[in-house]
């Protein structure tokens, strides 16, 4: 009874092994997100700086706030990733690769979209701001589905709600507040939460060892 042959010739033990492997990969994928959650915190801070600069010092290079802060954020992200990849004990599995594909492609799409809008001076439109939040929500939702992580699913819902709210309120002031909440608070809070989750998991592993 313990090891009956399944329909397609796979034994029960084999199936259990596969399931365990998949569960381990999902857990590793979550940890991978946790290890990279400093990127969320970094971008939350970058967005807060750019927004504050634009809002509080409009006559002191205000229009240059985003064109300066975004490339600086991109350079810091790449530098941080390079250092992380070189550090000992850095490993990835298929689940991590999938999550990396999601965020890598989101970064590429967002970069092209933002650059095109800025070059053509359409970055004042509310639909532009809303689209950025919708894209962020999309990446969080896909990652949440891959990693079966409800907390990240919640982050996706908050981003989507923010995108819809920007279009619904249709005012510059409301957009600034929503942007501040989404890019500043949600990004940083989720980043810190994921970092903490990763540390807790690593701590448990260490204790077991």
């Amino acid at each position: 009874m313990t090891n009956p042959e399944a329909d397609n010739g796979k034994s029960r033990d084999e199936l259990v092994q596969r399931l365990e492997l998949m569960e381990a990969m999902i857990a590793e994928g979550r940890q991978y997100t946790g290890r990279n959650s400093w990127i969320f915190v970094l971008w939350g801070v970058v967005d807060l700086i750019a927004l504050s600069w634009q809002h509080y010092s409009p006559h002191f290079g205000g229009p240059w706030a985003w064109p300066i802060c975004l490339p600086v954020g991109a350079v810091l992200t790449v530098a941080g990733k390079v250092i992380q990849l070189r550090s000992p004990g850095y490993s990835k599995n298929a689940e991590c690769n999938r999550v990396m594909s999601v965020w890598g492609m989101m970064g590429l799409a967002m970069g092209i979209y933002v650059a095109s809008a800025m070059l053509t001076h359409f970055d004042w439109q509310f639909s532009y701001m809303a689209a950025i939040l919708m894209m962020m929500g999309m990446a969080h939702a896909i990652s949440a589905a891959i990693l079966r992580w409800p907390m990240q699913g919640l982050a996706a819902a908050v981003y989507w709600a923010g995108g819809v709210a920007i279009l619904a309120f249709n005012s510059g002031r409301a957009t600034n507040v929503i942007w501040l909440i989404e890019m500043g608070v949600v990004m940083i809070v989720f980043g810190l939460y994921a970092t903490r989750a990763e540390q807790t998991c690593s701590g448990r592993k260490g204790a077991r060892a």
Partner: peptide, 28 residues
């Protein structure tokens, strides 16, 4: 989900004719 929410919100709020809106759908 993202496209449905975005398109409905843009249509209802009257943002459905902006260039950034059309481009965003393509980017999604």
């Amino acid at each position: 989900v993202a496209i449905i929410l975005y398109v409905i919100a843009a249509a209802v709020s009257g943002h459905g004719n902006q260039s950034a809106y059309y481009a965003a759908v393509f980017f999604f």
